[in-house]
C-alpha cells in the first residue's frame, strides 16, 4: 500500500527535482515588444520563436555588465548562424547614457530600451545584470544573475545543448 502511494507521487517528486536543478521550471517566457535604442524597428520576443534567445537586462552604470556585453557579443557572433540570438534590454534612466556605452562597445546584437520598466518586473529581475535563457519553444530554461570573466564558457555549453533541440 505504502509502495503504491510512493509510486503515485514519484513523477511529481522527479519533476520538482528537475525544476530545482535548472533554477527555473519550464514556463513560457513573458512576451514583449520594445523599441531599439537607435530608433530602428522594434524587437519582439515572439518573432524569435524557434531560436534560442538570451534576454539580458543591463545598465551602463553596472560594472559586471561591462564584462558581460563584449563576451556575449563574441558568443552571439559564433552561434548566430545556428539559431542563437541575444536581446539586450537596457534599464538606464537616460537613453543617452546607454547609447554612449553601446557606441564604445560596438555590439552586434539588438539593444532595446524599456523606460517604463515593465519587462524587468514581468521577469522578476533580482540583480544587475540578470539574463534569461529561452529555448526554441519559447520557454524559460535558466537564469544567470551577475557576471564574472569566463562565465560565457558555461553559458556557451548550455546554449549549445539547447541549439541541438529541434525547432517547433
Amino acid at each position: 500500500m505504502r509502495k503504491a502511494r510512493f509510486k503515485k507521487y514519484l513523477p511529481l517528486l522527479l519533476a520538482l527535482l528537475c525544476g530545482a536543478s535548472n533554477g527555473l521550471q519550464a514556463a513560457p517566457a513573458p512576451d514583449f515588444t520594445l523599441p531599439r535604442l537607435d530608433d530602428s524597428a522594434p524587437v519582439s520576443l515572439s518573432a524569435l520563436r524557434g531560436k534560442v534567445v538570451y534576454v539580458d537586462f543591463w545598465a551602463s552604470w553596472c560594472a559586471p555588465c561591462t564584462v558581460a556585453l563584449p563576451e556575449m557579443d563574441q558568443l552571439r557572433r559564433d552561434l548566430h548562424a545556428r539559431g542563437f540570438e541575444i536581446i539586450a534590454i537596457n534599464l538606464d534612466e537616460s537613453a543617452d547614457d546607454a547609447l554612449r556605452f553601446i557606441q564604445r562597445m560596438g555590439l552586434s546584437y539588438p539593444v532595446v530600451t524599456d523606460l517604463a520598466k515593465t519587462t524587468p518586473q514581468a521577469y522578476a529581475v533580482s540583480g544587475m545584470p540578470t539574463a534569461f535563457l529561452i529555448d526554441r519553444h519559447g520557454e524559460l530554461h535558466s537564469t544567470h544573475t551577475g557576471f564574472r570573466p569566463g562565465d560565457s564558457a558555461k553559458i556557451r555549453k548550455t546554449i549549445e545543448q539547447l541549439l541541438q533541440e529541434t525547432p517547433p
Binding site: C62, K117, V125, T130
Partner: peptide, 11 residues
C-alpha cells in the same frame, strides 16, 4: 529599491 533603480547609488 529595485535593482534597476540603483543608477544613482552606483555613481
Amino acid at each position: 529599491v529595485q535593482p534597476w533603480e540603483r543608477g544613482n547609488l552606483a555613481r
